[in-house]
Design a protein around this nucleic acid. Sequence first.
DNA 1: TAAGAAATAATAGTAATACTTTTATCTTTG
DNA 2: CAAAGATAAAAGTATTACTATTATTTCTTA
Lengths: 226, 226
Amino acid sequence: MNLQISIQPNLKLALRDPEGSALGRKIIRECIKLMSTLGYEQFTFKKLAEVIDSTEASIYRYFENKHRLLLYFLTWYWNYVEYQCMVSLHNLNDPSVKIKKIIEILTGSLPSWSDTSDIDKAALQEIVIAESSKAYLTKEVDDINSLQLFKPYKDLCRHIAQIFSEYNPQYPYTHSLASTVMEASQFQPYFMEHLPSLTDFGGEKRNSKKVGEFLENLVFASLRKS
Amino acid sequence: MNLQISIQPNLKLALRDPEGSALGRKIIRECIKLMSTLGYEQFTFKKLAEVIDSTEASIYRYFENKHRLLLYFLTWYWNYVEYQCMVSLHNLNDPSVKIKKIIEILTGSLPSWSDTSDIDKAALQEIVIAESSKAYLTKEVDDINSLQLFKPYKDLCRHIAQIFSEYNPQYPYTHSLASTVMEASQFQPYFMEHLPSLTDFGGEKRNSKKVGEFLENLVFASLRKS
DNA sequence: TAAGAAATAATAGTAATACTTTTATCTTTG
DNA sequence: CAAAGATAAAAGTATTACTATTATTTCTTA
């Protein structure tokens, strides 16, 4: 199966489709590495231009600004997760199995991360974990939201909430539970690495499985019919 | 009861104690208003200097930079929450009552916010909700953490985790549950306001009670002995 | 294959940010 | 009253986040 995904060129996200040119693809590829290394604040178009041997102005012809570029990555990521869910769940019926699968995907412990595209997925996931919140924790949230730029995230949340209510149609907080789990699946690994006392699984390496267990426990406990 | 709280001058947070001078107090007071209005990114020392009729350089004699100033506020806030917990819980025995109280405090639906200090607590809470993550989602996390600047947050998390394990000594994820609840108590109200489809309680105004109900349900479901 | 269009590079420029430095003027406090 | 310390005033720096202009390369397509 070919896991190549291409974002339908969203002209609000990018000024021109970066997948459609050599320079564009180079921008994406190198930007992911650079931004995950430097972090969002230290990352600049100028530094990226040096790395790809081009100019700031050329990058600006693809992306209005840094923030839109970040959103481009997040959109890519959440579309990809949604896609993974669709592929993994389409032949499943038992909602509890679906839920387990989703948590497995969210906590990134799936091998399907390896495909043919030249995107450094590990670096992309680092960006998602460390920078996602900066996409919406800005005074421009409402503007960005009205441009539909959070759609993939909201769609996935809705999708997960839908499966929660398949499992227990009486549960009243499906969307909040879904967004909480999505957030926690990013924050807990970050805490694990940098502020381990906020979690119960510091120390040991490669613990995404533990986060998954915690979230499974959380979700099934919440959804249990009382 | 006097709810006045003063942060013991943490010389890593501030270069000199802002509570100890008229200018310092003015900086704090006006900064809270300005930062909550402009948001962290748009807030600058220069703009603040104009508002308080002083100079950038004078502000820099109190705070190394914007980020430390943010940490100062967060420290104040989490110390205050911890204090509120101590006051509210010290004569309680039943862990389930304690848990309910904590969630009430976390979701800010307590009236004790009104006291004599001239700090605009509503504005402070807006800052906490919208900017907290930016305190630790930075490449300098580990440095800042080793200066103990996240201590109040981690202490409160530990405290809550402790009460969770009073309620159910078998539950294995007390710290992760505590940090998840602390995060969610900030994010859910933000989502409610800006991205309501990520929650189950958009629309209706003043819904912190609903967030509290969701979190209570989440916590007690998770902690229920199986 | 030549002409025109589009993309990219090279270069420069601007306003704002995040500071630092210097010097002068207040205000305490001993 | 003198010295120390705090604040103000003013200027300066490196970097950021862009925008603009012009030149060069590459891509179409007639």
